[in-house]
């Protein structure tokens, strides 16, 4: 898929020819320098934005064909979001924030409350259930966000730099928590991070540079694709020629569909 921002006269090509598959239950890291298109990618996967080209298939559903309301329902039921900041509605309590996706999905009030308390317990914050969201510390807010992202038992959890505002101790606790939840619930996680400790915890890392996938490697670091940094990528003839040549370039053109290990 691709995503071009701005008007046609001065387009910003935030993503181009990105293609990959994530299997169910997998935990992938998305890494890359700032401005490389990581958030854009995650927003597209999460249906917060629509691609300029290409398509996104979640659980076999081509989401490009969905209406706004259908996307909203799918986000509510199938996807959990964790953002870098302003994750919570500050006027509400921690518990209310966790319950919010359930309430939007019109879940039963009593069961929902019980489940929200369960989720808060899982992230170790049951004691802060009644605290106002704005009174929580940064690490606590992110834990509440994780609890909220899990309330509707989504099949996919998307996290955009969830530890970006946290110190290393809190970051490590948070990633361990996500890893545990991922293993326990067999939910798919896609986590944007430049923190190598987090990247190391994931099954796989997708590296983005200048809107393209640079390489994808296993958690152990053995790369099966590498970047050449070729500057003539936009030259169509060169592309065509290179495309036939090898797998490396296919990756760079975003045509690689990597199988899970």
């Amino acid at each position: 898929m691709g995503r071009i921002y701005g008007d046609p006269n001065s387009p910003v090509e935030a993503l181009r020819g990105v293609s990959f598959t994530v299997d169910h239950g997998e935990m992938v890291a998305i890494a890359g320098p700032s401005g490389s298109g990581k958030s854009t990618l995650l927003n597209l996967i999460g249906m917060l934005d629509a691609p300029s080209s290409g398509r996104i298939v979640i659980n076999g559903i081509d989401v490009g064909g969905l209406s706004e309301d259908e996307k909203a329902v799918m986000r509510n039921e199938e996807i959990g979001f964790i953002f870098q900041f302003s994750n919570l509605i500050p006027e509400l309590t921690a518990l209310e924030n966790v319950m919010l996706p359930g309430m939007i999905g019109k879940k039963n009030g009593f069961d929902l409350r019980k489940k929200a308390i369960d989720r808060l317990t899982q992230v170790g914050l049951s004691s802060k259930a009644r605290s106002g969201a704005s009174t929580l510390s940064g690490g606590e807010m992110q834990r509440v966000a994780i609890a909220r992202s899990l309330i509707n038992d989504p099949s996919l959890v998307l996290a955009d730099e969830p530890t970006g505002n946290l110190d290393s101790k809190n970051s490590e606790e948070l990633i361990n928590l996500m890893r545990d939840l991922n293993k326990k619930n067999n939910q798919t996680f896609a986590i944007i991070s430049h923190d190598h400790k987090i990247v190391a915890k994931c099954d796989r890392v997708i590296r983005i540079r200048d809107g393209m996938i640079e390489d994808q490697e296993d958690d152990v670091g053995s790369s099966d694709v590498t970047s050449t940094g070729d500057k003539s990528l936009n030259d169509k003839k060169t592309l065509e020629k290179l495309r036939e040549e090898n797998k490396i370039l296919r990756t760079r053109l975003g045509k690689l569909e990597q199988k899970r290990r």
Partner: peptide
């Protein structure tokens, strides 16, 4: 931002 967040977690336009 709050509206964006609510939309992200699944509230519909009508909501």
């Amino acid at each position: 931002r709050d509206i964006g967040l609510l939309r992200a977690i699944g509230i519909k336009r009508g909501g």
